[in-house]
Amino acid sequence: MSISIQHISKSYEDVTALKDISFEVKEGELFGLIGPDGAGKTTLFRILTTLLFADEGTATVAGYDVVDNYKDIRNHVGYMPGRFSLYQDLTVEENLTFFATIFGTTIEENYDLIKDIYVQIEPFKNRRAGKLSGGMKQKLALSCALIHKPNVLFLDEPTTGVDPVSRKEFWEMLKRLQKKGITMLVSTPYMDEAALCDRIALIQDGAILEIDTPQEIIKHYPKKIYDIKANNMYELILYLNEYQYNHSVYPFGEFIHYTDKRDDFNPDELVQFLKDKGLENITIQPTATTIEDTFMELAR
């Protein structure tokens, strides 16, 4: 096991950040920690990267205990905090050189590992890090976290504040890194990114809701989901919430995701109900379950 977490709990003064968390990440796995802001993701990352003590429970990373062998962990992991944490007044190249130096290596020595990522920002190597775009900052931060060839990589919300194209590129990079045998624990509030992980843990209010592969998690979803659309979306939500058989109603992109309490739900009945309320152009069709639907269901 690359990361092993057993019964970890952590509270700040009056808030419980983590409640009895346990899970394991296998060697070479790309593991996603999916949950909204304030779910406890960053706290868990900080415990695993030896920056915080847990109140209860134990954890090991790359075989080292996070409390007793914290120095070994600090030598063998890469950590990319949620907030951009490089030196803004240093150039791209100076940042990378600095991190290579403090890890006792050089850019040349591990260039093959970061090459794919670094070539994209290399044209700007003399630009100050503070002047880079969000996507480029993340690429630089990832390069810096990788420069010493870590066994385990911790990425705390690496794509927050990054444009969709850069997000996609970033995940492609993570997939390539995974092929090089690096274990990765990634947290994200974006549900669509969850499908790109080998396994995910859904976390909310400091507790794990479910751990499995994204495919299995979707399969566990108990209901059939319908996309509904009408001429007035705002009224549509109001009337759907009014409908006595509704199980859940969530806006989802240009549609409303709707589930019904009954197993023998007939969509035509609902269409008639909405028509009676004065809505027009109503479409209703079954749709595929997403991680987000599952999360919403579990978080109810």
Partner: peptide, 13 residues
């Protein structure tokens, strides 16, 4: 404040 201390702590230095 800038969060770089976090990275420095999680390094061999």
């Amino acid at each position: 404040e800038l969060g770089t201390m976090e990275i420095l702590l999680v390094s061999p230095i």
